[in-house]
Amino acid sequence: MARTKTIPYDSAEHLDTPEAIAAYLGDALDSGSAAEFQDALNVVARARGMTEIAKASGLGRENLYNALRANAHPRFDTIQRVVSALGVKLTIQPTA
C-alpha cells in the first residue's frame, strides 16, 4: 500500500487580508474559549510577523511570544495592545 505524503496545515498562511484576520479572530472569540482565542491571536501575529506586532504593541518580542503561548494567562491590557497592533478591535453585542 502506498503512503500518502501530507504537509502540515498552517492557518497563518491564509490570513492575508484584514477581513480574513477579523473573521478568524471573531470565530475564535465566538467559541467562548479563552485558549482558542489566545491561539488565534498567536496564529494571526505569526501571519503578520511577530517582530512587527511586538513593535506595534509596545511589547518585547519575547514577551509577545510568552503572552500568546499555550497555557499562558496574559493580562487583558496585553490582549488589547495585541488586538490593536493587529489592526482589529473587540466589540460588545447583546447575546439575544
Rank of each mutant, 00 (worst) to 15 (best):
L29W: 03
G49P: 05
E52Q: 13
L15W: 08
A96P: 15
N63H: 12
T4Y: 10
A85L: 03
V44E: 00
A12Q: 07
S84C: 03
S57N: 07
A12F: 06
D30L: 10
N66A: 13
L64T: 12
S57E: 11
S31W: 05
A47P: 07
L68G: 14
D39G: 03
L29Q: 15
G87A: 07
G32N: 08
G58E: 14
A70P: 11
R81E: 11
K5G: 11
I92D: 06
S31L: 07
P8M: 01
D10S: 01
L59C: 10
V82C: 04
A35F: 05
K55T: 15
Y65K: 14
A96M: 02
A54I: 09
F37Y: 10
G60C: 12
L64R: 10
A35Q: 10
Y24P: 07
E13A: 15
H14S: 15
N66S: 12
G49M: 07
R61H: 12
K5P: 07
N66R: 15
V82P: 03
V44N: 01
L41I: 06
A85H: 00
L68I: 10
G49E: 05
I53F: 06
S84H: 04
D30G: 08
K5L: 12
I21A: 10
L86Q: 02
D77C: 12
R46Y: 01
A56M: 01
L25K: 09
G32L: 06
I92W: 03
V83D: 01
S33W: 05
G49F: 15
G32Q: 04
V83E: 00
I53C: 08
A56L: 14
Q80K: 09
A12L: 03
P18W: 03
V44C: 02
A96F: 09
P94E: 11
L41G: 13
V82Q: 03
V44G: 03
A20N: 04
L15I: 11
Q38R: 15
R48E: 06
L64A: 12
A47G: 04
